[in-house]
Design a protein around this nucleic acid. Structure first.
Lengths: 259, 259
DNA sequence: GCATTTCATCTTGCATGCAAGTTGGAATGC
DNA sequence: GCATTCCAACTTGCATGCAAGATGAAATGC
């Protein structure tokens, strides 16, 4: 009716239903993360991204419960794609499908977070080993990105900008697994890392200042540069172990319902 | 019509459609792996298991192409659960959904196998570390299973029974990740290990006799028993690295279309 | 007033229907 | 005979319809 759809709207006269869904599927109207413009990937992918972002940004907090119906209506699509997206989200641990009661956004328990950190320790250690074993260190754009994000971390820490520090830290860890050349490691790490982002944003201001994180990152970079795979892997594992160790006492104090 | 459904068939008069699907969903009629009787988990799960087994057992070889229609008809269900199962199988790398051409069973390339082995190296190393760090070593049923499967391996090797050796080897690695207490590690390892089973069965008779595998397993067990997490992790990683190293030259010789 | 029972409603799981797109082959022009 | 064009048939993606089951509240018995 009074919808403003923007000048670039294509395929307007498609099916009578699903105008909003089409917009979401084309990458517009994704609240929270605009991300890069990407060709329409279908309604399932759109629903998945929307819901994942909504959960990660705490727009759908833990304990939130809804029916596929409502979510589908809100997204302007039918239940089917929402249903499939929910199956994916359940596999990844974000939600729980209660057989005939609805969909429940799961809380991250301390046990979940410890599991996630142990997975990250393993995968990032492997990624560091693989990077160190690669040949073209001089030309590696990954090393450039790792160094840049580490420098950005140090700078943000000097400015006391914790949000910038967190962003740079995520850049480093994303670059580490993205650059290792193993797509499976990258996808698995991205999945579990997404789950941990929720918690890390809440705990960010509760833990001591991460003064030596940049140094630990630098140690990883140096080991990769020197081609010492074992040292690089151990440095990455030690770094995550350190972060895990800092997290444990915090987890015992806060109210987990808010995760 | 002339269907024999067995005496235990329940819910016979449900919907008119889907008798075979119901049987499959209830755990009967799963060719290849009988597995344990498990309560009906729905048609999606049934289709997923059936297709996964069919691919792993090479009943659906790489390059096989079919429409959701046919598979659904063969399983006695509608396209919907097959569609959702295929989405899962695509995420896990077993098949590729060609947008409007059908479903293609993917071949495992050498690069895929190397990726899988690197993931297993990371996850099993982490599992070994976690097991070593646990407290109740004496009572651990996991250690009992690890030791039993390792003994079975040595025995099978003495008998020259490669199939029994492979079964015992799989038992060991399954117990390692299952006993570590981290459900995410277990699920991730199970996913990628499933993919590698196809290849391992083909390469089993092509590689040198695995004479020192039992010794390497024993080293992992001993390190876990002594509570030395670092040593246990490194032993597990070294074991997988060793296997990976043996696999590389084989991969370059065989015809990959058959994977 | 309180416990029990029943039923209407709401939920997911799946079947079916429909539309858009591609593809292979048949028909046509040369 | 060969290239080109067009169409019919399959394909998946998604909407909709329908049934089984759970749930909570209203009605009933005490």
């Amino acid at each position: 009716m009074s919808e403003r759809k923007g000048a670039t709207a294509k395929r307007q006269a498609a099916t009578q239903t699903g105008k909003v869904a089409q917009a979401v599927a084309e990458g517009r109207m994704l609240p929270g993360s605009p991300e890069r413009e990407q060709a329409s990937e279908g309604r399932v992918e759109a629903a998945y991204r929307y819901l994942r972002n909504a959960i990660l940004s705490n727009e759908l907090p833990a304990g939130f419960q809804a029916a596929e119906n409502e979510i589908a209506a809100q997204l302007g699509m039918s239940r089917t794609p929402v249903h499939e997206a929910m199956a994916r989200l359940q596999e990844e641990g974000f939600v729980q499908i209660l057989p005939r009661k609805g969909i429940l956004v799961r809380a991250l328990t301390p046990a979940d977070l410890l599991e996630i950190y142990d997975v990250l320790i393993a995968l990032e250690g492997a990624a560091a080993e693989l990077l160190a074993a690669e040949a073209d260190h001089a030309l590696s754009s990954t090393l450039v990105e790792l160094q840049a994000s580490t420098d950005a971390m140090a700078e943000a820490l000097a400015d006391g900008d914790l949000d910038a520090w967190r962003a740079a830290d995520e850049r480093f860890h994303d670059a580490l697994v993205a650059g290792c050349g193993n797509g499976r490691i990258q996808r698995m790490a991205a999945t579990v890392a997404g789950q941990s982002h929720r918690a890390r944003r809440l705990t960010l201001h509760l833990r001591p200042m991460p003064t030596n994180s940049a140094a630990e990152h630098q140690a990883i970079i140096d080991a990769i540069r020197s081609g010492d795979a074992a040292a690089a892997g151990e440095a990455a594992r030690a770094h995550r172990r350190h972060a895990r160790g800092q997290l444990v006492p915090i987890l015992k104090r806060i109210n987990f319902r808010q995760l």
